[in-house]
């Protein structure tokens, strides 16, 4: 009978590079992201994990839930430690091993931005993945520059909600001229696995941005963890696309666009947003979506919403 996702059964059952017993919360999007990413990458992978939720999820010494080599590193160094490992592997003649930096939004957008920028400018042959739960979740839900406007966090409480727009990390990476930039999420798992398979075979700095739901931080029931992630794409808040050597492809075109309000109202963290702010966010999302469509298909006239 037909599988929902275009992922062969053997791929899901052949090996367990991620084993259970991990310390993630119920419904953790980051745990699911790692599981699926490794399905695309396989066992010839090394992972660099800076301070972030995954620093804890993996388990406590002397145990690790991952069956690939992992090195924990200080918060801001994921990209450059990966670069160092890559140099060493090249010296050893092991060029087919993927070195992946697996960092949260804090370690990418904020404190880790410098080392990421350095690695990207050098086009170091690493795969950099930002699993983005849109706040410093590991330390208790504080805002980052990846936190979307209107979201409650412990440092943007009601009355002082974050107003600044979310940094556009894909564009920042693109500005470095790297060969591959993509966004993905567990709500479209076959697309995610495919992107990791593809990224594995590209040389140079590859950047994948994963929207990673966090039930405690987003104030949602763990049961709807994947559903809300899907709503992010259906409402065009989190478009799923890839840019390969400057060429844009939008991978998920929502058949029926979900209103942005539905996405916001599904999460407790947006409960304090006023109508004005919702309207502003909706406009921002619309604008960015249209720009993206235009870049993906410059020949077409600018799309409009009917």
């Amino acid at each position: 009978m037909q599988k929902t996702f275009d992922i062969p059964r053997e791929k899901m059952t052949n090996e367990e590079l991620l084993q259970p017993g991990m310390l993630s919360c119920q419904g953790c999007g980051a745990a699911l992201s790692m599981k699926l990413a490794l399905k695309g990458l396989g066992e010839r992978t090394m992972i660099v994990i800076p301070a972030s939720c995954w620093g804890i999820i993996i388990g406590t010494y002397p145990y690790s839930t991952l069956q690939v080599p992992v090195i924990h590193v200080p918060f801001e160094t994921a990209a450059v430690v990966a670069s160092g490992i890559r140099a060493a592997l090249d010296v050893r003649g092991e060029a087919d091993i993927t070195v992946m930096a697996w960092a949260g939004d804090g370690g990418t957008y904020d404190i880790g931005l410098q080392s990421l920028s350095g690695a990207a400018e050098r086009n170091d042959d690493i795969l950099y993945v930002c699993y983005d739960n849109e706040a410093y979740m590991n330390t208790g839900i504080q805002r980052s520059s990846a936190t979307p406007p209107g979201a409650w966090t412990s440092t943007t409480p009601a009355g002082a909600l974050k107003e600044e727009p979310k940094k556009d990390m894909e564009m920042i990476m693109l500005a470095h001229g790297v060969p591959y930039v993509a966004s993905a999420s567990v709500a479209y798992p076959d697309d995610l696995v495919r992107k990791f398979e593809k990224a594995r075979n590209i040389k140079g700095t590859r950047f994948i941005h994963l929207l990673s739901s966090c039930p405690p931080g987003w104030r949602i029931d763990s049961a709807v963890s994947v559903k809300v992630t899907r709503m992010a794409t259906q409402s065009c808040v989190f478009p799923i696309y890839e840019i390969e050597k400057g060429k844009y492809t939008v991978n998920v075109l929502p058949e029926e666009r979900l209103p942005v309000e539905d996405y916001l109202q599904a999460q407790g963290r947006f409960r304090e947003m006023g109508k004005e702010m919702i309207r502003a966010v909706r406009e921002q999302v619309d604008q960015r979506w249209l720009e993206l469509l235009a870049r993906a298909d410059p020949g077409k006239n600018q799309a409009s919403f009917d």
Binding site: M1, Q2, K3, T4, F5, I7, R9, M12, T13, E16, L18, Q19, P20, M22, S24, G27, C28, G29, A31, L32, K35, L36, V186, P189, S225, V226
Partner: peptide, 13 residues
């Protein structure tokens, strides 16, 4: 129908 959704989407394997 063995569509594999649960298999694919379980975060805890």
């Amino acid at each position: 129908t063995e569509c594999d959704n649960c298999l694919v989407l379980c975060p805890d394997v």
